[in-house]
Amino acid sequence: MTRPDAPVRVLLVDDQHLVRSGFALILSVEDDIEVAGEAADGAAAVELARTLRPDVVLMDVQMPVMDGIEATRRIVAEDLAKVLVLTTFDHDEYVFDGLAAGASGFLLKNSDADHLVEAVRTVAAGHALLAPQVTRRVIQQMVASGENPTAPDAGRPAPVTERPPREVDPRVAGLTPREREVLVLIGTGLSNAEIATTLFLGEATVKTHVSNLLAKLQLRDRVQAVVLAHRCGLV
């Protein structure tokens, strides 16, 4: 377990040395972040994750030997670290595959330095993160295709000729009225702070409701909660 006051340890994975150096320069100046190591391909990333046990892995997608998606799948399967997928390619398939592999976040490499730092902190804290440029489109496509990001074959949505009917997930029936309200607001894309303002609650209370509903719904993170809220017609 990482001590509460310990810095977030990050493993940088990219086949370009200059890219890794740039990320290291940005992150190393932060008092609460430590660059634990670097890898140039997915296979090396998995081995280093086993050895170093970082808190977060910044993972490129397209690399030799083993790509970032497969490396993410192995790291998450062994519970070695949380993974933040980084890519220059704003393509849906990368997002689908990354989420299906268990990534906690997806961020474009052209994001500014402040956004990168905050993304690392967000993922390290256990929250899901998607680049604003792709969030809405990914949610809409997942819902329209009936894609389930927790399914074994998730990330490879088959073409559909019509939108599947919205169905009531039996797990939703087990939520309290307040948890259901929170789920609806998560589905609209609101943060915990925004939900707190909307419902006139403390942010700590909202965090508790979010944790409870994710556990009851057996969802990994907020991204899956958003998809479920849309699929069930709550939003």
Rank of each mutant, 00 (worst) to 15 (best):
E70S: 09
L86S: 05
T51S: 14
R53W: 03
L99M: 15
Q218I: 07
E118S: 13
S191W: 07
D55C: 05
E162Y: 12
G126I: 13
R220M: 13
L52E: 00
G187N: 05
A45Q: 02
N148E: 11
A100E: 02
K82P: 01
V65D: 06
A77D: 15
A144G: 01
G68C: 07
Y94L: 03
L228S: 04
P159V: 04
V61D: 08
L84Q: 06
L27G: 04
V206S: 02
L190Q: 10
T208V: 14
T208E: 15
A6L: 09
R9M: 02
F96P: 00
V29W: 11
P152D: 04
A44T: 13
L12E: 01
Q140L: 13
R53E: 03
T198W: 02
P157H: 07
D60G: 14
P4W: 07
Q140V: 09
P149V: 02
F200S: 15
E70R: 05
R74V: 11
T2G: 03
N110K: 13
H91L: 14
M142K: 02
L228Q: 04
K82N: 12
E203G: 02
K109M: 10
I75Q: 00
A125V: 01
A49I: 05
A131Q: 06
D90R: 12
F200C: 02
H209F: 03
R156H: 15
Q62P: 01
I139R: 04
D67M: 07
M63A: 08
L217C: 13
A77C: 05
R178D: 11
G174M: 13
D14P: 03
V57N: 05
A204K: 09
A6R: 08
R222K: 08
D5R: 09
A119P: 09
Y94F: 14
L183H: 03
G174I: 06
F96N: 03
V19N: 07
A204D: 15
S21W: 10
H230D: 03
P159F: 12
F23C: 12
Q140Y: 01
A204T: 15
Y94S: 07
L219K: 07
T197N: 10
V182S: 06
T2A: 13
D14Y: 07
G155H: 05
A44I: 05
V13A: 08
R180H: 15
R178H: 06
L48Y: 05
L234E: 04
R137M: 11
S104I: 00
P157E: 06
M142E: 01
S111C: 15
T161W: 15
L52N: 00
V210P: 09
P170N: 05
A229G: 08
E118D: 14
D97M: 14
A196S: 06
T135Q: 09
E30L: 09
L130E: 01
R180A: 11
R9G: 04
E78C: 06
A154L: 05
S111E: 13
V223I: 15
R73D: 00
D60I: 13
S211M: 13
G37P: 01
A158M: 14
G126M: 12
S28C: 12
M1R: 09
